[in-house]
């Protein structure tokens, strides 16, 4: 659903931060010119995904534990840099490094799916 995706994107990019309150259903509906039920449904979906929490009487808040994806991605950068340094020191070319990464990701995906099937 569009509104859910939009809100997720805003949270992921840090435009809406952890702990921040989302606009009331009424305000959201009037600002975006959409049916208030659509807003209620979007908030409920975000709640069931653990992204926001409904605090009774005070509104809808982004959970403190929700970290902006942009921040998480930033943490990945130094890890990737040092990994690439070491791979390059093995004299691997760019396309080979890419293949190694793709291969590892593929193996992990297969292992995960196998675990899911067994469960």
């Amino acid at each position: 659903m569009q509104l859910v995706e939009r809100l997720k994107h805003s949270i992921a990019t840090g435009a809406i931060k952890a702990g921040e309150q989302l606009p009331s259903v009424r305000k959201m509906a009037e600002d975006l010119l959409i049916n208030p039920n659509t807003v209620v449904r979007a908030y409920r979906d975000l709640e069931s995904e653990g992204i926001v929490e409904l605090r009774h009487g005070s509104g809808v808040f982004v959970r403190e534990s929700v970290e902006a994806r942009a921040d998480v991605m930033r943490k990945a950068e130094p890890i990737m840099r040092s990994a690439l340094d070491r791979l390059e020191s093995l004299d691997l070319r760019e396309d080979e490094i890419r293949r190694v990464i793709e291969n590892e990701l593929g193996l992990r995906r297969a292992a995960k799916e196998a675990r899911k099937r067994r469960a």
Binding site: V25, R26, A29, E30, L33, I34, N35, P36
Partner: peptide
């Protein structure tokens, strides 16, 4: 048109 949609949303909220 936007004014009209606003009136609709205002009415139900």
């Amino acid at each position: 048109r936007r004014d009209i949609l606003e009136a609709i949303i205002r009415s139900v909220t």
